[in-house]
Design a protein around this nucleic acid. Sequence first.
DNA 1: CCCGTTCTAGCTGTCACCCT
DNA 2: AGGGTGACAGCTAGAACGGG
Length: 285
Amino acid sequence: MESGDLRIFQAVAREGSITKAAQMLNYVQSNVTTRIQYLEAQLKTPLFRRSNRGMTLTPAGENLLGYADKILTLMDEAVKSTQYSDHAAGPLRIGSIETTAAIHLTPLLAEYQSRYPDVNLSLITGVTHALLQKVLDYELDGAFVYGPIDYPDIEHVAAFEEELVLISEPGKSDMHELLSKPMLFFDVGCTHRAKAESLLRGTGLTTYQIMEFGTLAVILDGVSAGLGVSMLPRSSIAKAEEKGIIASHRLPEEYRDLQVWFVHRHDSIYSSALTRLIQLVEAKQ
DNA sequence: CCCGTTCTAGCTGTCACCCT
DNA sequence: AGGGTGACAGCTAGAACGGG
């Protein structure tokens, strides 16, 4: 089994099609078919279920894909570690929670990109648990997420500190009345949600309604329209508050602090691009 | 018919081996 | 050391086949 076979296997698994994988890899389709058959013969087990609509992984294929991802990532990192030994260059895949991406991260990344223009930076946004999973799966080099996090494979650098506030439609201030309204959050993995539930229990509210939304903008619109309240970092709602479409309310001290960490796998071979980003985050502390 | 896989023949580059 | 030769891996092109 060679790395080339694993790359082809990974491409077919990802695309779910030999034809699409061949196009992606700039091979002819029959070559991809042959390499997959060769791999299956070598391993003495089918890796895919074939249908006229594409290819789906067998349990053995699922298992191999996990190893292929790790092996190929390590190989890429090994190449990076030699090619970009001192000069920060090459790809750097970063994730960030949406509330942090807009306010804190944009200036940081702008400074990073101006210092290291040869780094091909890509950024995706998501919620903490989803970003963490992508880091664990080697799909991201690192991510800005809410801490604290306790994973054996993850290392972190404290990046930013936020103040969590309760937001509501303007003109409302009675905390008990506000907390009895529905809470608008990102999805299940949203870190603020656990704090909110703790706060609600602390104020004696045992029943509460949670609504899930996909983006910050929709949550702000919902709160502004009086649909409910939410808990978000102050920095992420500052502009909306300035416009007067929402009002913010300070939370009790034990619920206020919010830490943003930059996390990465501890077994990553640090590329120069990743090292420079970690250094920049540390310098901002 | 379309879209996907599979099969086959043939081409090309690489490598080991042998000869001069 | 340098060149010729054969085996082999990897690839392409084209045709056949199959299911919705």
